[in-house]
Structures are given as structure tokens and as C-alpha cells.
Design a protein around this nucleic acid. Structure first.
Lengths: 362, 362
DNA sequence: ACCACCTCTGAAAGCGCTTACATGGACGCG
DNA sequence: CGCGTCCATGTAAGCGCTTTCAGAGGTGGT
């Protein structure tokens, strides 16, 4: 059936633009124009070409188009840790709009300093593999920025703000303030805070900002910031648990905890239970994000529209790609306190210190 | 500095293989061979070439390589819903090994019948964009299979089993049996089951298998299977809650519930709480997966190595790509019952029916 | 000294598109 | 009726690699 039979057997050769041209009795240039909807093609020709193309189930080879045009029709999404709820939501949001716009989404894990590698280094360089990139909470150095700009890549950041690229995010200082104020409003004065880590894949400025908000709220309420009440939880459930452990084991433990993510808050919940502390009777806990599961455990949290971050970032990348010059604007999305059942007014009775159950650490 | 200055200003043209060849005083063919480590290149030549390449920070344009070789050095991962814990874990596992092996991972959301579209249809066709594909719980029809084989794509499935491709998964019948037997062993006889949905993006055979295991265990214990105890929860937290709602609202409600995923089990937990039922005092709940958060809520569950599925699938794709002929084998991974605190022996006292709190549905 | 046989290298033909640039005809207008 | 325009189409030059084929030396055996 096909004019050229392909390899030895079976597997028929895919139709190329030449096949279509021959079958439609036009030149390849016309086929190219007709199929991509370019102007200056007679209607009759266009119809004939697309009919033939359909019959041959022709599809332009992306590799060839890429080579010829220099555009890959795909955008990269770089995330530190793909298996964290937050990142998976962002990626999910981005995927939806990228797919809808006909772009491939290639996701790039950039845990640790591989971030650099993925950008600049050898074989792994994203050079020419994507038209644009969204960076989700990955720290960009000056040289990274320079590299990206010199390549003419369309980039958008989520979370982190970078002077040279548009970014999507929330007011992280406000997040800290909202959480702390909620707790302060309930009468708590000793408020623990579980934050990010320094170094490692999750080394980004967000934790600092949220802490700043927390401290600001405390100062405003004329309460001293006690450095002993701050501990890192690396944004995971288990990290949050360990962090809370150290907080709750202290002699003068806090009556409330602000965890900078819901997953860490879950860990804190776990820790509280293991320490035999009633939540919110003996300790209040508030998180950030509004994780799917938060409603299940009744977690009070500061909600942000996570998947939407990804969607907007993707849209912004595409806008840059389709001509519109997008400045290095910062899109700030709203956050919202969602009060559930892990926070309650401080009870006046002084909490006694409980002895934690023994437990083997994983 | 560069022989050809690029566009109008700034942005220097990237070095091509020709630039390297010229600078090293050899032909492009030799550069190609030298850089890719092919044999028959004098050591001195190879060193000179790679030195020059480094200096020019040359990197082969992937589009050009793809066109010339026909290989894209990327594999697609198709998942129904990217924002579900299970899928994000699988993707995460796959990403790690793909990145390590130098492949791009393009993730493709295939909710609903878009699955077909992503495979066969027009602009979205994966034709020539990937060398291989892993399908995570996406149903493959005969024509899909035929399409994939005719294209010579390396494919691996996770979850679903397909006669023509290797697959990674677990013994889902056993999962149902293990869960049910655990509950039966605790004395429960009325065991609700929250399963998948029919139709929609999550229409795959796994729920049937797990139900089969559940029924098998019941029959073995000489307990009739009550169709009224089966309800669908579409694998989400909220779906699980609604499903549990309908189970718990019945006059003769179950004393235990087997949810086919932890997320649905979370929903069931929520529902139980809203119905004022003590877990595990009045109702036992068991899930499947061992979600990150399961430890927090103390959920008893049947654990499977989710991220590992993705890693193994990716590895299998790569093996096919690098020559090794991998048969349509089925790799069955172990599952394990993890007993926590949402399951307990049936109390002899007949549970009274509680009236659910009023609640507005979202 | 001759020949067979390696090893290393280069020339050139693609891979399948896109896109100036050129061309020919139809049409409008003075 | 002649000429300038404009539209539809074709020609061909890339895009930046890979890979076949052939050739130039160099080695070793006889």
C-alpha cells in the first residue's frame, strides 16, 4: 500500500512530508504551510493536503521541526523533590495547562546541587531541550540567571522571587504573621516554630520569610522571640515529627506550634500523640498549605492555591513563548486561614510535662 | 572571540560541532566519534577534541541528534492523575532512574479518554517524541497495544497487566485477601469495601482484583458477600469520605471497612469521626499503600513499594532501549500488612447507630 | 621488498522539516 | 491593452548532527 515498504517486514515506514506532498501533488513547502495553517494557501489545496495527510496519518516529526525551527515545544519544570505533596500539586497544575497548549512537560528533579548540574553542566544540561522552564522553589544563583537569560529561555519561578524573571507566589511573611496571630489571638505566648532546613535540596528563602512574619507578629504582641523554640523539620512528615519531638521534650515546652507546612504539622501531630499530649487541649498546631489530608486530621492551616501556582506559571511561560513580553513581575496569590480543630484557646492550667513513650526511630 | 558572531548583539551563537572540528583541526565526523566515545579514535585526538569542546562549552544539539539517530533520549510516563499520592510517588521513582541514565522524562496526564488521544490522535500523539513509555494504571486497548508495538516503542506498564509488555505490580488479589483476612481475624464479619469507580480516569482492573481477593477471603470464612457493603470512592480522600458516609449511614452498618487506598481510608476516618464513631472501638479501617501520612493517623494498611514501582518500570524501559530483549514478563512485588491503630478486635456489644452530625457537602 | 590487514580520519549523504527567495499567473487599473 | 500587484506555489538552502564508505598510513609476516 505505501509506496516505499519499510524495513524487512511488518513495521511500515512512517509517512514523511514528502509522501504527503507526492500524494497530494504539491511541493513539500506547500504541505508544510497547509498543515500549519499558514496564510497564502488556496483553500482547495489546503483541504486536499489535509485530507491526504489524514489518510497517511502523517504527523510532522518533532525532531525535524525542532531542528529546523529551534523550538522544542516543550517546557521543563524543575522541582527539588517530586514526591512531596506541594511539588506534585504544582507539577500537576502545570501539566494541565501545558498539555492543553500542546507543550510537552519534562520534569526535572533538582535535589541538592544537581540543580546547578541540570542547568549548566555537561550531558544533563537543559540546553536546547526546552523552550522554557519553571523553577519551583529552586534557588537560582547569578550565574544561573545569566545562563538562562543568555539562552533566551522563557523562565518563571514559583515561590522564590528572582529579579529577572516573572514569579508566582504568596506573601510568605504574611503567612507567618497570620499563623502566629491566630495562635496569639487564642492566648498562646510560647509558640514553637518548625521551619525549613539549611542546606540540602530544600534550601530556599521561604522559611526565612515565614519566620520573619512569625517574629513580627510576636514582637507586635510584645512577646520575646525565643530561639529555643525554633527547630527545623525539612518539610517532611518525619522531619516534622522529629522537630516537634525536640520541642515537646523541653522542660518549658510551647503550648502551640506553627509548622511551615502541613506535612510537618502532621508530624507534629504524631509527635504530640506519642508524647501523650491532647491536641488542641494541651497543644495547638497550625500548618501551611491545606494539604488534601488536612481536612481529615482537622488541621488548622494557612491555605494557598498550590496547583494554581503551577498552572499560572505554565501560562506565563507560554505567554513569553508566544511573543508577549512579560516583565519580571511578581504575582502574589491570596492565602487564607482555615481554622479546624487542632487549635484552641490556651487553657490556664499549667501543662505538666509528659514523658514521651519510648519509640525506635526509623 | 567566536569566529561567527551571532545575532545583532550580546547572545553569542552556541558552538556547533563544526566549530569544534575547526578549532581542533579535525573533521566533524571525528569530533562526533571522539565525543561519544566511539572506537577508532587516536587517544591524542580524542583528548584534543574534548579539550576544545570543553573550552567552547560545546554540547551536541539534541534535536539534531534525534533527527539523525531517531532516538529522543526521553521516555514518557503516562499517569491518570498526577496529583494523587500514588501516582506522584511512581513518577518520582521513575524520574530518579531516568535522570540518572540521562533520559528526559516527559510526563503525560491521561485523565479519561485523553489516554487514547495521547497515544493515537492528532497533535498530541507521542509519536517520535519518546523512545519508550511507562503506563501507570492506564487501560490499554488492543489498538493502543498494536499502535505501540508497530512504532517499536519500549513500553512497560505499572499496575495493569498487558500480555504484550513487561509490567510491574503487586498481587492485587492477595491485597484484598490480606486486608479482609486481617479484619476477619479480628472477628469482623460485616466488612464494608470502598473501591474504585467505573468509568472516568481511574477505570482500571485493580479494584476488581482487590475485591476478588476480599470476596475470596470472605467465602473461605463462610461469610456471604453482601453487595450492599460495596461502594465506590474513586481513590480520593473526599470520595472515600462520601463512600464511607453511605456505608455508615445504613441501618446495619459494617463494623470494619476495607478501603482500596489509604487516601480513601483517610476519607473513611473522617466520615467515622463525623458520624461520632470511635476508631477502632466501633469501626475498624484498613487501607492500601502506606501513604506518608498513614503513620500519622495510625492507619492499618497493606503496604506496597510504590516509588519502587516507578523506578523498576523506568529501568525496564531503559533495558529494552539498550538492546536487551525483555519479554512480556510480570514482576510481582511484595506487599505487607502494617498493623497500626485503626483496626481492633470486634467488640461484642452491638454498636448502636449514631446520628451523623449535619454537614454541608462541598 | 611486497602484500594483507589494521587503525585512524575525512568526505559526503542523509535525517525530515522550515523558510527565504523566485516564479508564474490572475487581476485591477489607467 | 499593458503593467504593476498580489496570491499561490515551487526550489533549494539550510538546521546540526550521525554514519557509511573509502582512503591514507603504518605494521607485521613471509
Amino acid at each position: 500500500m505505501a509506496p516505499h515498504t519499510g524495513t524487512a517486514s511488518g513495521e511500515r515506514r512512517r509517512a514523511t512530508i514528502e509522501d504527503v506532498a507526492a500524494a497530494a501533488g504539491v511541493s513539500v513547502a506547500t504541505v508544510s504551510r497547509a498543515i500549519r495553517g499558514l496564510p497564502n494557501v488556496a483553500i482547495s489545496t489546503r483541504e486536499r493536503v489535509s485530507k491526504v495527510a489524514d489518510e497517511l496519518s502523517y504527523r510532522a516529526d518533532p525532531a525535524a521541526s525542532r531542528l529546523a525551527t529551534g523550538r522544542s515545544q516543550s517546557v521543563g519544570v524543575a522541582v527539588p523533590l517530586l514526591n512531596y505533596w506541594y511539588f506534585s500539586q504544582v507539577v500537576s497544575g502545570a501539566e494541565a495547562v501545558l498539555a492543553a497548549e500542546g507543550y510537552d512537560m519534562i520534569v526535572i528533579g533538582v535535589a541538592g546541587d544537581d540543580a546547578r548540574r541540570a542547568l549548566l553542566d555537561g550531558a544533563t544540561s537543559i540546553h536546547r531541550r526546552v523552550d522554557g522552564l519553571v523553577f519551583v522553589d529552586v534557588p537560582l544563583g547569578d550565574d544561573d540567571t545569566e545562563f538562562l537569560r543568555s539562552r533566551g529561555l522563557a523562565v518563571v519561578t514559583v515561590g522564590n522571587h528572582n529579579a529577572h524573571f516573572p514569579s508566582i507566589g504568596i506573601d510568605d511573611v504574611a503567612v507567618g504573621e497570620i499563623a502566629a496571630e491566630h495562635l496569639l489571638g487564642l492566648g498562646h505566648t510560647r509558640i514553637g516554630i518548625i521551619g525549613g532546613q539549611t542546606g540540602g535540596p530544600l534550601d530556599f528563602p521561604v522559611p526565612d520569610l515565614r519566620r520573619t512574619g512569625y517574629e513580627r507578629a510576636l514582637r507586635r504582641a510584645r512577646i520575646d522571640v525565643d530561639p529555643a523554640l525554633e527547630v527545623v523539620g525539612n518539610f517532611s512528615v518525619l522531619g516534622g515529627r522529629d522537630a516537634a519531638d525536640s520541642l515537646l521534650a523541653t522542660h518549658d515546652r510551647p503550648t502551640a506550634v506553627f509548622a511551615m507546612s502541613d506535612e510537618m504539622a502532621f508530624g507534629a501531630l504524631l509527635s504530640a500523640r506519642e508524647h501523650g499530649l491532647d491536641v488542641p487541649g494541651e497543644i495547638s498546631i497550625v500548618g501551611v498549605d491545606d494539604h488534601d489530608v488536612s481536612v481529615v486530621v482537622g488541621l488548622t492551616t494557612v491555605r494557598q492555591p498550590v496547583a494554581d501556582h503551577g498552572a499560572r506559571a505554565a501560562r506565563l511561560v507560554i505567554e513569553q513563548l508566544t511573543g508577549r513580553e512579560v516583565g519580571p513581575t511578581r504575582v502574589e496569590r491570596p492565602v487564607e486561614l482555615v481554622v479546624r480543630s487542632t487549635t484552641a484557646p490556651l487553657t490556664t492550667a499549667r501543662n505538666e510535662v509528659h514523658r514521651p513513650e519510648t519509640r525506635s526511630k526509623p
